[in-house]
């Protein structure tokens, strides 16, 4: 079931205000420009920071509705996907593209409810090989490869 609309959380506007304040603070540390009459390198981050603070305050008062955050199985799928992508990122250069991609696709499909051993064995392997061929062989994109990972292709 899609999440239902909820009203009035103060969290998003507060985050916007904090981000804007942080940007203003960071922009103060930028050294001024040397050209005469130049508003300087700090101009854009200052303007963006001030806008975020002002708009955040406006939204804090307005308390506009937003979609509810996912819960239960939905949250597991989203958080699990983010975690698996981070793990994929961490192993990409260590294990090499073929091994890490195969592992990522298998885990991701399990997370989404695929239980057929045949599908879990063939689809990740086929997709890994296809992507490798497409990027590495056809487009010459240097994907990370190790001896162990390379043996899978």
């Amino acid at each position: 079931m899609p999440s239902t609309p909820q009203t009035g959380s103060v969290v998003p506007p507060l985050l916007v205000i904090l981000l804007g304040a942080g940007a203003l603070w960071a922009a103060m540390g930028i050294r001024p420009g040397m050209l005469p009459n130049d508003p300087g390198p700090a101009f854009l981050p200052m303007a963006a920071g001030a806008a975020l603070v002002g708009l955040g305050l406006r939204l804090l008062v307005a308390r506009e509705p937003h979609d509810g955050m996912p819960r239960g199985a939905m949250l597991l799928r989203v958080a699990g996907t983010i975690g698996l992508t981070l793990a994929y990122l961490a192993t990409l250069e260590r294990w090499g593209f073929p091994a890490s991609t195969f592992a990522f696709l298998t885990c991701q499909m399990v997370l989404l409810g695929v239980r057929s051993p045949l599908a879990l064995a063939t689809l990740p392997a086929g997709l890994t090989a296809l992507t490798y061929l497409l990027f590495r062989v056809l487009l010459s994109v240097p994907l990370p490869a190790t001896r162990i990972g390379g043996m899978l292709i």
């Binding site: 916007v16 981000l19 804007g20 981050p45 303007a47 963006a48 975020l52 708009l55 406006r58 939204l59």
Partner: peptide, 14 residues
């Protein structure tokens, strides 16, 4: 809401 559009734009500028 328009303010939200401008928040997104300000974030992009940042």
């Amino acid at each position: 809401q328009i303010s939200k559009g401008f928040v997104a734009a300000a974030l992009g500028l940042l």
